[in-house]
Design a protein around this nucleic acid. Structure first.
Length: 352
DNA sequence: CTTGCCGGGAA
DNA sequence: TTCCCGGCAAG
């Protein structure tokens, strides 16, 4: 149904070559972190035989076992004490057959087994909303676009002025992609969204979340009155920091309701910005929009941005530089390409 | 020539 | 929806 323009948000990961080597250990930790969202916590107390249970028998997968790894990357800082054993959630590399492992699925922590990594071939069927969270110390800023968070980091943390300095890719280390599961939040708000006839396609301004303090203490039990991670039956947004990208850059999303979920005891505030506006143009260009400064990108009411220099040639990408899957792996290893490349679409792995 | 990928179509 | 390919443009 999304009849929206592509809106290339792009520029998620610039180039990663050196960190990929010593990323092993960090990746492992990353996987653990992403596992902190237990499916049991949010499933109804009846027959915890939730969907995910090692039974993804898809059709394809011609390669031998598990033709996918994690293309995730992690950030230097660490927040949220990783001490909550919970069943794995992002069990991607499911074994279609073989291995009578009943359940569980000690996820593989070796992301770089086969040549390189690869984004998960098939997305789970989850209504996920991606956001970008600043990992800087004491700053849990969460934006909805990569460009926004990069600008935020550049301007606020790195000190660089908003413009005149093109994204070096350095900001990539200070923010991460967050996916919040909003399968039921939409429901909670489904009864509220249509109730407000005032704004239909307008931009949802910063949500007044009744919680905006993320006290990260090793105590690990800051909340015990409102909801305990086990006694919460009502569905809530659960987020996991597993990063990956599907084909086509993630578009800005409109997450309704309060986006607050505390896996352990840390909550973060969400300051919403940049609603889904069709912005047809080069993804993140050094060309400044306004000589304003750092950390600004929103449009209220009447959007100030009009159509880009359209007219002649539609909007063909200026041709990406750098090697793409095709060049890297070659035609003979086509099954190693990212899905987008395989389908002759814009590469998602080596985006420029 | 090769490579990236848009647009369109089949399954 | 996933998957593929013709064909074009950039290099």
């Amino acid at each position: 149904m999304p009849e929206r323009a592509p809106l290339t948000v792009a520029l998620l990961f610039s180039r990663k070559s050196s960190e990929e080597l010593d990323m092993d250990k960090v990746t492992a930790a990353m996987v653990l972190t992403s596992l902190s969202t237990s499916p049991l916590v949010r499933s109804p107390p009846v027959r915890p035989t939730e969907n995910m249970s090692g039974s993804w028998k898809e059709g394809g997968a011609p390669s031998s076992s598990c033709s996918s790894g994690y293309w995730s990357w992690s950030a230097p800082s660490d927040q949220s004490n990783p001490s909550t054993p919970s069943p794995p959630l992002s069990a991607d590399c499911a074994k279609p057959f073989r291995s009578p492992a009943p359940d569980d699925g000690i996820d593989e922590a070796e992301a770089g087994s086969l040549l390189f990594d690869e984004p998960i071939p098939r997305k789970r069927k989850n209504s996920m909303k991606v956001m970008f969270k600043c990992l800087w110390k004491n700053c849990g800023k969460v934006l909805s676009t990569a460009a926004g968070i990069q600008k935020h980091i550049r301007g606020v943390h790195l000190g660089r002025v908003g413009d005149s300095d093109y994204s070096d890719g350095e900001e990539d280390f200070y923010y991460t992609e967050i996916k919040l599961n909003t399968d039921a939040v939409a429901d909670g708000l489904g009864s509220l969204a249509p109730a407000s006839p005032s704004q239909s396609l307008a931009s949802p301004p910063t949500f007044p979340i009744p919680d905006s303090s993320r006290t990260e203490s090793p105590g690990a039990k800051a909340e015990t009155k409102l909801m305990t991670p086990l006694s919460r039956s009502a569905p809530t947004t659960l987020y996991l920091v597993h990063t990956d990208h599907a084909y086509q850059a993630t578009p800005p999303v409109t997450i309704p309701g309060s986006a607050k979920f505390t896996p352990n005891g840390s909550s973060f505030s969400v300051s919403w910005q940049s609603p889904p506006v069709t912005f047809t143009g080069i993804p993140v260009s050094p060309t400044h929009h306004h000589p304003g400064g750092a950390g600004e990108q929103r449009q209220h009411g009447h959007a100030v941005l009009s159509s880009p220099p359209r007219g002649t040639v539609g909007l063909r990408k200026p041709r990406g530089e750098g090697k793409k899957c095709r060049k890297v792996y070659g035609m003979e290893n086509r099954d190693l390409w990212c899905t987008a490349c395989r389908w002759k679409k814009a590469c998602q792995r080596f985006l420029d």
